[in-house]
């Protein structure tokens, strides 16, 4: 797994897991592998995975059953919120980037529209 070293790795892993949940690759209520197993699979420091698990739990994306393991939330509502939050992040970054290039809001919308048209054709 190749990570972008310019940003915290644990955040990148969290986003990966969140995406998998949103896309249904991981089911609600499903049990996660242990943090050590994840660390080995992703080739990262086990402490990084512990951080990921802690943060996911803090955000309510996962919950831990003592002695049993860590599970994905069973709340569909939570997943919807997560989806929205991630989408908002992407949009925010997009707008930020475009503003830095000097685009105004209308131009941004135009650009999006033309891009979506092209995507629709394919």
């Amino acid at each position: 797994m190749n990570f972008d070293n310019t940003a915290p790795i644990y955040i990148q892993i969290m986003n990966l897991i969140k995406k998998d949940i949103i896309l249904g690759k991981m089911n609600l209520g499903e049990k996660l592998l242990s943090s050590r197993e994840y660390a080995q699979n992703l080739k990262v420091n086990p402490n990084t995975m512990v951080r990921v698990f802690n943060e996911l739990e803090r955000e309510g994306v996962t919950f831990t059953k003592r002695g049993v393991g860590t599970f994905i939330t069973e709340s569909e509502e939570k997943v919807e919120i997560m989806k929205k939050e991630m989408a908002e992040d992407i949009v925010r970054n997009f707008i930020q980037g475009m503003m830095e290039l000097g685009f105004n809001f209308n131009d941004m919308i135009e650009l999006i529209k033309s891009r979506l048209d092209k995507e629709a054709v394919q």
């Binding site: 070293n5 310019t6 940003a7 915290p8 951080r51």
Partner: peptide, 11 residues
């Protein structure tokens, strides 16, 4: 990780 977050760069 804190450095990555605060400085937005790799180690």
């Amino acid at each position: 990780e804190k450095f990555r977050l605060e400085k937005s760069c790799s180690i």
